[in-house]
Design a binder for these strands. Structure first.
Lengths: 193, 193
DNA sequence: GACGTTATGTCAGCCATGTTGACTTATTGG
DNA sequence: CCAATAAGTCAACATGGCTGACATAACGTC
């Protein structure tokens, strides 16, 4: 069966027992020591998204609808083009879910004041209610995760996640997080690059 | 246009300027203060997965193939049933990608010694090489994210992600992360529950 | 040895959400 | 008037979830 099982140096993850997944020491770590993150990130994101998914399914919606609701709530009056820049999907993909949300009265479109070609997006009261439900359940999970980690965990967790974002995209996300309209001109067009 | 724009109390995120996305203080935060996490998590995971996606595309593979490679590498001799318990997808979904990986020689199947119905899964040298490439690129991103966050960040980030996982699933993930075979009997079957 | 259970594989089809390419419509601004 | 822009739309395709039904081989028990 050959040497299928092991490649690379030892993959001990340095658990000392008092902490579920990580030790408190900071030995210089080889890259393979970081494998656990790949799994943690995968499982964490999966569970993080499954709560809203369950609610959305009751409305006949999916994850894509959630994203639209979320960012429209975050930046009321968002233009379609801006939303495309944030989500980095094609307008055809967006149109499919946006049309549903508009048709069913969760999102309201209004022509721009200065440029009437623009369709400014707003949540209806109905849309805001649904988005609130989704936000609440996700916020509770985050709160729970932070609760057991001493002070300073909040800042550190945010900065860790921020650091996971491709450098080129960080300015866009940074302004977005402040609830501002992002200048997306420098952000990565495809994946990394 | 009614009051579409604002619901809930003020959504300031407490950025003080010296840190890109988070302040160092620990005021009691309302749930809406955690909205930034929803975005950070979304963007971070998107960028985290896009690096491997680009490599996988060169092989005609997708994200689903990556997961199989990853966990088979992690637990050589993994049974199909165990993999299904980890990924929580149907065997039909798994079969589609697993068949490709086996047919193209990235994964080797071997009947179990005691129970010859079992198909034990192993990476071939070719599979190990591909998986290594994927691990390397993701590990580098993680390393970069941790690099700017003083000592203790590693343990804290791991514990934060761990805390984001649904409680019922944590024992499974914990043993998985130690590179052991997980007892999945208690894990959440669907989403949360 | 027959039989029920288990592990795995497979066929067929559906859904959600991403993609590309081509084209229309309304509006803007020079 | 006309080119450029914002948005919408149609058609077709890929990936990766899902369900239901059924096949095969091996195990274990009576």
């Amino acid at each position: 069966m050959a040497d299928i099982t092991s490649e690379g140096p030892s993959e001990h993850l340095g658990a000392t027992g008092h902490s579920p997944v990580a030790a408190a020491d900071d030995r210089p770590s080889s890259l393979v020591d970081l494998i656990g993150y790949i799994e943690l990130f995968y499982f964490a994101y999966r569970d993080f998204t499954c709560d809203p998914d369950a609610i959305l399914a009751q409305y006949g919606f999916g994850r894509a609808h959630h994203r639209v609701l979320h960012f429209v709530h975050r930046i009321p009056g968002l233009k379609v083009a801006e939303l495309l820049d944030i989500l980095k999907i094609t307008k055809q993909s967006l149109a499919r879910v946006l049309k549903q949300l508009v048709d069913e009265g969760f999102i309201i479109q209004k022509a721009g004041n200065e440029d009437r070609r623009e369709r400014r997006l707003y949540l209806s009261a109905k849309g805001a209610r649904l988005n609130d439900k989704l936000t609440q359940i996700q916020a509770k999970r985050i709160e729970g995760a932070l609760a057991n980690l001493g002070p300073g965990a909040d800042a550190l967790a945010r900065n860790f996640l921020f650091g996971m974002i491709t450098e080129k995209n960080r300015p866009q996300v940074e302004t977005l997080i402040k609830g501002q309209r992002a200048d997306t001109s420098e952000a990565a067009p495809d994946c990394n690059t």
